[in-house]
Design a protein around this nucleic acid. Structure first.
Lengths: 224, 224
DNA sequence: GCCATAAAAATTGCATGCAATCGAGGCGAC
DNA sequence: GTCGCCTCGATTGCATGCAATTTTTATGGC
């Protein structure tokens, strides 16, 4: 009998799931620009499968919003309009605010200390002007918040959103520059303060404002 | 046998989208209990299609969380555990809070007046103890909020969540009974107050608390 | 030379076929 | 009578085939 209860979180359990994951990775890692055609047949050969399971995976990714299916004309990497980026960023802001609220309810002292440590590290990187490491810490803090929220559905949704926004954020490059960077650090201070007090309403509002600022910075950088 | 239910809310653009929609409707309207097998072949015959497009639609709905695909064992209507319902309700609470926040930013006077009118109507139904109409107004208010938020991605996500939770909410029957009902009405007053002041932070917190109460009521009624 | 049109090639979408797997019923051991 | 094993019908998952559509290429008119 073959019993393996979810222990292998990263090894795909079924062929289908593995194809979906590989296709997701392909979309995220390809150098092709948004709007480029997804080469169905090529990918079939690369993955060593026929068109049926590949097309199933394409439908799933299209439902997820990562690609777009044009009737009789194949799949393209989804191009986000400025308005769509704005909406998705607002959605992300709402999810982060929620994550903060939930984290305030259930975060452990240990988890809080880890976030505080990440914050110090991030601040140090800000002071010495090390952007790559700053962003790394920044991202780690936001991930830690979602982790502390302890809501699997929220986490999955945030990850999906993050993927959809990846290209837009990337093309907008570093959203923190000059004054905005300083401001972002200040906002992070407020986030930590609210979290320290376990003040859900406060952290929600501060996080929302923080992500809103990021959104505005990104939108400014999108030429459209 | 091609039974064409005339309830196509949106004219499906492609065959695939239509199948997904019809399958969604089938899941929502079937009398089969959660956990029941989705009769793939039967539905193929009912829809007048072969297994390939049906299977594509099944994968999409599974990715959406409405059904579950067991390897080599077909599809079942997703059974939500108590913990999953709790998580999804929290997520819904977060989305409503976001909708409220965004609505405060962009709601028109006309939209606000319509919501206020719905509120009065709802209150009247509360006073005369008419639960069906009360719930109708209640739902209309929440939908109006999402509409006023003007965020397509948020709206789509909320609708998807609502579907996933449909069965749980239904089996938990009316979540407002006795004292809880009075409380819910009071919460709605607070929501209206915050919206009147266009106070995003306040409406977010009140809406979150409101949905949280609904969540707790539902969880209490789930026997597990 | 350029645009419009038409034929050819490639691509897409669905149906069908076939091997692998699952589940029910039957059989035998105890 | 119950438990375990085995076989057979049914189901699932993927590959392949074919008609419909699109894209590319070829051709002719101006």
């Amino acid at each position: 009998m073959h019993i393996d209860n979810g222990l292998k979180r990263f090894a795909a359990t079924t062929m289908h799931d593995e194809i979906v994951q590989r296709l997701r990775d392909w979309v995220n890692e390809t150098s092709l620009p948004a709007g480029a055609k997804v080469p169905e047949r090529e990918l079939c050969e690369e993955f060593g499968i026929s068109r049926t399971p590949m097309r199933e995976a394409l439908k799933v990714l299209a439902a997820d919003g990562l690609i777009e299916l044009l009737p009789n004309r194949g799949a393209r990497i989804k191009v986000l309009t400025r308005a769509e980026v704005a909406d998705l960023m607002d959605l992300m802001a709402g999810l982060e605010a929620l994550a903060g609220r939930l984290a305030c309810e259930r975060i452990t002292d240990e988890e809080f200390q880890q976030i505080e440590q990440l914050h110090q590290e991030m601040y140090a990187n800000f002071l010495r002007g090390d952007r790559p490491r700053y962003f790394q810490c920044n991202q780690a803090i936001h991930e830690a918040l979602f982790s502390a929220a302890g809501n699997a559905a929220l986490d999955a949704m945030a990850r999906s959103l993050q993927m959809r926004l990846r290209r837009a954020r990337y093309t907008a490059s570093s959203d923190a520059q000059g004054e905005r960077w300083r401001e972002a650090v200040r906002e992070h201070e407020l986030i930590l303060d609210a979290l320290r007090k376990r003040d859900g309403a406060a952290i929600a509002t501060v996080l929302f404002a923080h992500l809103r600022s990021t959104r505005d910075a990104i939108l400014r950088q999108i030429a459209e």
